[in-house]
Design a protein around this nucleic acid. Structure first.
Lengths: 144, 144
DNA sequence: ATTACATGTAACTAAAATGATTACATGTAA
DNA sequence: TTACATGTAATCATTTTAGTTACATGTAAT
């Protein structure tokens, strides 16, 4: 199964806040670009806010980035929107039989292997910033 | 969300077939060790068989490995049990708005980044064999 | 103050995936 | 033909997702 698109949408939201920084980036505006419901966006904005990535205020239209673009990595977004918990990218079956040689050891044997795989994936996310994302979009549009 | 435990169970099955190679490893025997239903095991056995990792025959009790332990990587099991499709570890929201600068570029920008993260994870799986897993279990049991 | 409009948040829904379970067809060998 | 194994389909409860609706809360302009 796939990791929730909340992650991709979170990146979309942050990139659009940056590229629309002269304007007002409301949940309705974002929802239109993402093609979803404003309430879905507001829920994600809440998560991004809680993680200190954006600034939003009740009653005041628009969101602003709370950090420099180059200070926000994809990993920050990934953690903010809560798509994968630590050591839980792979699920391991519970209660294997303790009387069996394999059953009583499989969890402890597999866990560090799965953790290493997850960390390798997350390391890639740590090495990409939103600045990279925004620059790539600009390049595709021949803006720069 | 997490990747299906079919992966962990698949590893469990293969390790147990190896460690019980003097005996008969039936779906019922495996189900008891994994602590699930024999039909679940048989479905997984079918997948492992289809990928050429084990040999099973209708009407004949027991499964055997079809390859050397050191020739089976965790990645082979991962692909066999079909837990994550190529380039689909992360899902990307569909139909963002094409009239928006971000909307019309976000998918193409994000896709290679997500693919790179997925590949990094899979690379770790490619570098671990079932021999490593079985040896680790043996070590934990002070067998070697 | 009231109006207009934004965010914050809860409740409800349909769709999809998972894992368990049951049942039965198919295949093998004694 | 009997006993028992694998192969496989149908069904079910649970969980997650993403969308939707509704409304409370907060701000600012009139």
């Amino acid at each position: 199964m796939s990791i929730s698109s909340r992650f991709a949408v979170g990146i979309h939201i942050l990139a659009l806040i940056e590229l629309n920084k002269e304007g007002v980036t409301s949940s309705e505006f974002l929802a239109s670009s993402v093609n979803t419901n404003p309430a879905v966006i507001r829920k994600l904005m809440g998560m991004l806010k809680k993680s200190g990535l954006i600034e939003v205020h009740p009653g005041i239209a628009g969101a602003k980035l709370a950090k420099e673009l180059s200070d926000i990595t994809l990993f920050d977004v990934y953690k903010a929107v809560n798509v994968v918990q630590e050591k839980e990218l792979f699920s391991i079956h519970e209660s294997p039989h303790p009387d069996c040689l394999v059953g009583r050891n499989i969890q402890n044997t597999i866990e560090p292997l799965f953790a290493a795989a997850q960390l390798a994936m997350e390391k890639v996310l740590r090495n990409v910033t939103l600045e990279d994302v925004v620059k790539d979009i600009a390049t595709k549009e021949n803006i720069c």
